[in-house]
Nucleic acid binder design. Structure first.
Lengths: 247, 247
DNA sequence: ATATATTGTGTTTAATTGACACATCAATTA
DNA sequence: TAATTGATGTGTCAATTAAACACAATATAT
């Protein structure tokens, strides 16, 4: 593995990714456990000297998940001057960081917060060079996090919920073909609230972003639910221009 | 005036403020014209080594406007690697920048975008040390801007319009006591669309954030409109928790 | 005193949302 | 093989919300 070279990156700026994965019933967030730490951390990284922040985030996401087609959104930049102070000394003390990178890591960092939405099942979690574990954690059982990562996570979740009010969600979280109950379960997981099955379906159809297929999901007990798929162009138009109604 | 000392600030990170001022009928944005340039620029600045980004923005706002009580919102960070390239060479060539700051200014910058809302009339526009003019420009007559500032302005405006859907607006843009038509004019200026006078008033009252006063604005022709004021605690609660309905 | 133009309030209608009932059907089980 | 099960698909009705509109009130100007 290539060692970390601080001169490849712009100093004092990091990015942290809140990666949400939907497993069919719950939202999960992908976390790393650093070597020698009990606390977990958000997957993050740095921006190369000639790299766009969004590209850096995509690079990090690809490295941690193996997935490159996911929904990515920058939502806030965290700039508290002491935001990493609590743990950075511990990081150095434990000798996790190369000698040549000590100065780079010691400085104050501001961090670009991104959130990503992806399908839990297509992700192959891969630790980075600082960590020994990379794993999903359900939102209601998030362990202690390093730095200000808990706050970043909370704000990301709020942001997802807000974005949901105006923009379609599902493209990167569900299989190509999905049932209405599956889509509803996703919305319920994000909003953490139950929705009426019948009103939900009416609303979704009114947006014109999904298309009924002449197929059903069979193999399960009970009535076989119909399959739908997103209408690519309408979905993307709605991503850009927004939806008229809210949840 | 104290000269600019690059070591006071963190490198490679700037902030740009889109300051919106309401003059009673139109939204205006505060711009600077740099010495020797025809183009204008957003008021901006840098973050001191131990300063929170939000505090840096407040400092810049205070310097440019004299006002410290305004609504401030970070909305996006701009990270295109070439975002300042077009003009930074010109800036150096024109000798606007001190010798000791050339290296600081030459490097790539990412910029935190903030927008601010304030009352046009209480602002005393003050140029910074790089510029010779500081003036309001109505939104429909914004001149050529430096760097990517036009894009930053557009995104700020979109953000204000979006925030308006969920949060109260007016506290920092209107006088303490204001009339319903004045508040409506503000909303119309931001949304760039006409609203029904009667439905508007009903909606505003339903939020419970304004209070009828037993006073009227006199001195103008026609029926004297009633004065209102914001209910401080309800207004702040709505800022934090959001409003239920949209525009 | 009258005219003017704007403000304050109410009503009527349409659209949207929320709550709910019933028929349908794939797999299970008796 | 037929009945049972439990979730799905569609429809209806009431309540709420939003949109469109009419008219009375009134501070200045003439």
């Amino acid at each position: 593995m290539k060692t970390f070279d601080p001169t490849d990156f712009i100093p004092g700026v990091s990015l942290d990714c809140v990666i949400f994965g939907f497993d069919g019933s719950r939202l999960n967030v992908l976390l790393l456990r650093l070597r020698g730490f009990d606390e977990w951390a958000l997957p993050g990284g740095f921006i190369k000297t000639d790299e766009h922040g969004d590209d850096a985030a995509l690079r990090v996401l690809k490295e941690r998940t193996g997935v490159s087609d996911l929904f990515l959104q920058q939502f806030k930049t965290f700039t508290h001057p002491d935001r990493t102070k609590v743990h950075v000394q511990e990081l150095l003390r434990k000798g996790i960081i190369d000698e040549n990178a000590r100065e780079y890591f010691t400085s104050r960092f501001i961090s670009l917060g991104y959130y990503a939405l992806t399908n839990h099942n297509i992700v192959k979690p891969a630790p980075d060079y600082l960590s020994e574990e990379c794993a999903w954690h359900p939102l209601d059982a998030v362990p202690e996090l390093l730095y200000d990562h808990r706050a970043i996570l909370e704000e990301a979740l709020e942001e997802v919920r807000l974005d949901l009010q105006y923009h379609p969600v599902g493209q990167n979280l569900l299989p190509k073909k999905f049932t209405m109950p599956e889509l509803q379960a996703l919305y319920e997981a994000i909003l953490d609230k139950e929705l009426d099955r019948r009103n939900f379906s009416r609303r979704v159809m009114s947006y014109g972003i999904v298309e009924k297929l002449d197929e059903h999901r069979t193999g399960m007990a009970h009535k076989a639910p119909r399959l739908y798929k997103f209408k690519k162009s309408a979905y993307e138009k709605a991503l850009k221009d927004g939806l008229s109604n809210r949840w």
